[in-house]
């Protein structure tokens, strides 16, 4: 057992972090929001070049041949940099939708549900991964863009379920594995959001002065930040351990499959809560600035809220754990 990152994983993390620090600036993010569907296609191609979507595909299939644990490292970095777009859906589709792996096609995910659907990034999508049993890959229906989305970096549209065609069936054998991976990648992204919130707030707490000293010296704030940092790191370990359990299961049945679902769902629950605590702490630490549009704290919170609605919602993760008891 060793749950620390190995050298290859540290290098992967470092490479992506450097790329995103340079490329994913707040100005760039703002510019992306103005693109149709909130996705910058050129940037999407660069993410694909970095292997973001093809990471776990075999080298024979044009991928990088890494494990889902490596993918969680990548998705944490994407979350940390608050990269917009249907990243998880495109990653999942890379195994069976042509063009997803190399970034030429943007795939979104839609949960089967009521007639009246709210879909993210609709105008940027080329294909839709339509969840359900069986899952299908369909054409993109028309929708009505909502003028005021909750998260300014995640445009949303109204879509009528009846406007979505039947599409091509996804191999049912893939379905459970896809869902598990999706849960974990969402969880990893949440950990990244949480870490970004802790970092942003910590920097501010060190520089902002009141009563003649840095506000981060006040225990009232220091303790909020410590709790947020603790929640984030614990969530990260949960995501990594679940990912490794899934990886090792792919080699040999070590854990029963149902248990893997529970681990992935549990990791998602804890990560979501960490992101919420960290983002609200980040807002609080910034005082009035934290309530403004300028400081990115609200974007971290809002993206976390968007993610909580994905994959049947966080409640479905809670039910998965519940049913294991």
């Amino acid at each position: 057992m060793d749950l620390t990152l190995d050298d290859g994983q540290l290098a992967l993390q470092e490479e992506l972090r450097r790329f995103l620090t340079n490329e994913m600036t707040p100005e760039r993010r703002r510019a992306m929001s103005a693109e149709p569907g909130g996705v910058d296609r050129a940037f999407w191609l660069r993410l694909a070049e970095m292997g973001v979507f093809s990471l776990t595909l075999s080298e024979a299939a044009g991928g990088v041949g890494l494990g889902i644990d490596d993918a969680t490292i990548v998705f944490e970095e994407l979350g940390r940099a608050l990269v917009p777009g249907p990243l998880v859906a495109t990653f999942l589709a890379a195994g069976f939708v042509d063009g997803a792996a190399d970034g030429t096609i943007v795939v979104g995910a839609v949960d089967r549900g009521p007639e009246d659907l709210v879909v993210e990034h609709l105008e940027a999508l080329d294909r839709i991964l339509w969840s359900g049993d069986p899952a299908t890959v369909t054409d993109v229906p028309r929708g009505r863009l909502i003028t005021r989305p909750l998260d300014p970096t995640t445009p949303v549209s109204h879509v009528r379920a009846t406007d979505i065609g039947p599409g091509d069936t996804v191999d049912p054998a893939l379905r459970d594995g896809l869902l598990r991976h999706a849960s974990l990648l969402v969880a990893a992204f949440q950990v990244g959001l949480a870490q970004a919130a802790v970092d942003l707030a910590t920097d501010y707490a060190k520089s902002r002065q009141q009563f003649g000293r840095a506000i981060g010296s006040f225990q009232a704030l220091k303790h909020l930040l410590a709790d947020a940092a603790a929640a984030t790191d614990i969530a990260r370990a949960g995501v990594h351990a679940a990912a490794v359990a899934i990886n090792e299961h792919d080699d040999a049945d070590v854990e029963p499959v149902a248990r893997l679902d529970v681990l992935a769902a549990g990791a998602r629950i804890v990560a979501s809560r960490a992101a919420h605590v960290a983002a609200t702490t980040c807002i609080q630490v910034h005082g009035g600035m934290g309530y403004t549009w300028e400081v990115e704290a609200h974007l971290l919170l809002k993206r976390s809220m968007v993610l909580d609605q994905s994959l049947g919602g966080i409640a479905s993760a809670e039910r998965t754990v519940e049913e294991s008891l």
Partner: peptide, 27 residues
């Protein structure tokens, strides 16, 4: 049911965290 599920998820993450602490200390 929901609250207990959340606690179980928290404990599971703490178990992962324990293992990571052990790995870190070993290194």
């Amino acid at each position: 049911r929901r609250d207990l599920a959340i606690v179980v998820a928290e404990l599971e993450s703490l178990w992962a965290y324990t293992k990571r602490n052990i790995s870190t200390a070993a290194k």
